[in-house]
Design a protein around this nucleic acid. Sequence first.
DNA 1: GTCTATACCAGGATAGAC
DNA 2: GTCTATCCTGGTATAGAC
Lengths: 174, 174
Amino acid sequence: MSKKEIILSKALELFASRGYDATSTRQIATEAHVSEGLIFRHFHNKEGLLEAVLLQGINKATQYIEPILEMTDPRQIIESAICLPTHVPIEEHEFWKLLYTLKWQRANYPQEAFDQLQQKLTAAFESLGFESPELEAQLIEIYIDGLATEILLRGGDPTALTQKILTKYFKNEH
Amino acid sequence: MSKKEIILSKALELFASRGYDATSTRQIATEAHVSEGLIFRHFHNKEGLLEAVLLQGINKATQYIEPILEMTDPRQIIESAICLPTHVPIEEHEFWKLLYTLKWQRANYPQEAFDQLQQKLTAAFESLGFESPELEAQLIEIYIDGLATEILLRGGDPTALTQKILTKYFKNEH
DNA sequence: GTCTATACCAGGATAGAC
DNA sequence: GTCTATCCTGGTATAGAC
């Protein structure tokens, strides 16, 4: 791992656990065993470091959503979307916590990937003949956020809740 | 309004719009037309000021939930809970934004009122004969959060979504 | 209760050597 | 690419007079 990568991973870790504002570049440098100046050489300023951290995470996140975008069976699309939160490995939890925090405190947080998922879901509900596909897709997004909150914030086991939600859509099959 | 109250209301306004960390006591003092020292006389430190701001807001929030806690008709309880977010007046939006932000970045954020609502909802679902009342109550909480997000973050009109959710529970009546 | 003045430190950021 | 040293600002907080 290059020093640049070490900085990036330590920054993610600290931003996620303490928050962006509460984390100083000093701290990051110390924990990464790197001089503070190096951070600014590589990322220009603190904001730039945050953006790099986000970009890195977003790429990982897109990999979850991409497979769904390629599916054709509407039921499989909906089910996969709902189950999305349960497939996030523990080592990525901190990153997602950071993302949800930023969602509430920064206007321009990245969410293109989710918009694509939203469209895919709308199409899926449409092809299943639902009355208001956009609203149904929006509801799925709400379920995803709710499950994510349960996992990331309360550290709870989401399987029971996930099952419950699934039965709302696939009553006779599960 | 006493100077203490002016400080409190300005602090709420600034914490909510810019965030807690990003707001300096300097700024609060200036905008409240008050010396900075006075803030620390009244609230000991910045953290104490935040707590006072929260306490004030929580009291207001409890007033929304209390009427529901006194209801007896289970259907009315569920419906009222779902409609909760639509009844928050615009001038309180900033406060709720602050609360949702803190939910993600502070461990001990106040939520007793919501826990009470949760219990009331569980009892309501139980009396209606639902299979897993706890999970159903948790789902309502997720809906509330989802609707709040729609209103506070995207500034969207939640009525269509609220109606959609209501039909999930009261299909034949609406 | 309130203000003025001030201490003091930590934050982000830069310069320059290697 | 990396480190050392340093700057400067602005942040929280206190002391003491009124």
